[in-house]
C-alpha cells in the first residue's frame, strides 16, 4: 500500500513539473497568435489590441497560474482561435483516437501473444524461424505503407475487396456504431499488425529467457509437455513484463497513430495538437499536451501498480519505488 501511495505522490509531482515544462517550452517558440487571428493585413495596433484582449501581455507567471487554476477546476480553457472550449475539442477527437488505440492494441495483442508463444513452443524449427523472420519484416513496415496496402486490398472504392471504408469517420460519431467501427477497422489493422510484430518479438524473447528456468522444468516434471509448461507457467511468469510493455505501448499509440489517422482522414487528437501548434494557439496546445502527459503518467502509474501486484517478488522489495 505504501508503494502505491509513494507512486501517486511521485505522479503528482511529475505532473506539476511537466506542466511548467510544457508552459515554458511553448513560450520559447516564435510566432504570435495575435497575428494569426488578425490576419496578414492587420496593422501593428490591431495586433497589439488583440494581444491585450487575449491576455498575452500579462507576465508569464500570471498566465501560467491562470491556466493552472483553470485546469485544477476542470476548465481546460477556451481555444483562443475558435472560441470553442478546448475540453470539447479534445473530447471530439478522443472519441476517435482512444478507440483506435484500444482496437490497435487489441489487434496487436491478438497477433503478438499467440504467435510469440508459438515461436517458442513450436517443435518445427522452420516454423520458428519463419515466425521470427515475419516478425522482423512486419516490424519494419512503415505504417503509411501498411495502411496503403490495406486500402488497396480492402478499401471501399479502391481495393480489390472493397468492403471497409478507407476515409473519414461518420458525422454522427459513435451513434452510428457499426459504421464508426468499420471506419476504424483498417487503421487499427495497419497499426495493430506492426505493433503486433513488436509484441511477438518481445513475448518470444521473454519466454525464451524463462524457458530454461527451474519453474518450467518443474512443471514438466508434473506431467506437462514443454509447450504446455511454457504456455501455462511461462506466460504467467512473464505476464507482468508484458502488461508493462502493453500499457506503455498503448500510451504511445495515442500520438503514434497520427500517420494512420491522416491517411484515413480521421480527425484525431495528435492532428489537433499539430493544427493548434501551427496556429500558435498556445492555450489550447498547453491543455492538450497536459492531457497527454497526464495520460502517460497515469498509464505509467497503472502499469507500475499492476506490475507490482502481479509480481510477488517486487512486493517484498517495494520500498525502492521507481527510482532505486
Amino acid at each position: 500500500m505504501r508503494f502505491v501511495l509513494k507512486r501517486i505522490v511521485a505522479f503528482a509531482v511529475a505532473l506539476f513539473v511537466q506542466s511548467i515544462v510544457i508552459f515554458a517550452c511553448l513560450r520559447i517558440l516564435p510566432g504570435d497568435l495575435a497575428m494569426v487571428i488578425g490576419g496578414t493585413t492587420s496593422t501593428p495596433d490591431q495586433v497589439a489590441r488583440i494581444r491585450g484582449q487575449l491576455g498575452l501581455n500579462d507576465p508569464y507567471p500570471l498566465q501560467y497560474l491562470r491556466w493552472l487554476g483553470g485546469v485544477l477546476h476542470g476548465d481546460l480553457g477556451t481555444s483562443q482561435l475558435t472560441g470553442v472550449s478546448v475540453a470539447s475539442e479534445i473530447g471530439d477527437r478522443l472519441q476517435i483516437t482512444l478507440p483506435l488505440a484500444l482496437l490497435s492494441l487489441a489487434v496487436a495483442l491478438a497477433i503478438g501473444l499467440p504467435l510469440g508463444v508459438h515461436a517458442v513452443t513450436s517443435r518445427s524449427a522452420r516454423v520458428r524461424r519463419t515466425l521470427q523472420v515475419a516478425a522482423i519484416v512486419a516490424g519494419a513496415i512503415p505504417a503509411l505503407w501498411g495502411g496503403l496496402l490495406l486500402v488497396m486490398m480492402f478499401g471501399r472504392g479502391v481495393g480489390l475487396i472493397g468492403v471497409l471504408p478507407a476515409q473519414g469517420f461518420p458525422a454522427r460519431g459513435w451513434h452510428a456504431f457499426g459504421r464508426a467501427l468499420a471506419s476504424l477497422a483498417l487503421p487499427a489493422l495497419s497499426v495493430g499488425v506492426i505493433t503486433g510484430a513488436e509484441f511477438m518479438r518481445y513475448t518470444r524473447s521473454a519466454l525464451v529467457d524463462v524457458a530454461n528456468s527451474d519453474c518450467i522444468a518443474q512443471a514438466m516434471m508434473c506431467g506437462m509437455t514443454r509447450a504446455q509448461a511454457i504456455r501455462r507457467v511461462g506466460l504467467r511468469m512473464v505476464a507482468p513484463q508484458i502488461v508493462s510493455v502493453a500499457g506503455l505501448t498503448f500510451a504511445g499509440m495515442m500520438t503514434g497513430v497520427i500517420v494512420v489517422e491522416n491517411l484515413f482522414a480521421l480527425p484525431g487528437l495528435a492532428t489537433l495538437v499539430m493544427t493548434d501548434l501551427r496556429n500558435r494557439d498556445l492555450l489550447a496546445v498547453q491543455s492538450e499536451l497536459l492531457l497527454l502527459t497526464t495520460f502517460f503518467l497515469v498509464m505509467g502509474l497503472v502499469v507500475d501498480v499492476l506490475h507490482h501486484a502481479l509480481d510477488p517478488r517486487l512486493k517484498d522489495a517495494s520500498e525502492g519505488g521507481g527510482y532505486a
Binding site: 517558440l29 495515442m254 500520438t255 503514434g256 495538437v273 501548434l277 497527454l292 527510482y323
Partner: peptide
C-alpha cells in the same frame, strides 16, 4: 524516466514550429 515518456511525434511537432 520522465522525458522518455514524451512522445516522439510531439517532439517533432514542437521542433518543427521554429
Amino acid at each position: 524516466d520522465t522525458l522518455i515518456a514524451v512522445p516522439t511525434v510531439i517532439v517533432a511537432m514542437v521542433v518543427s514550429v521554429p
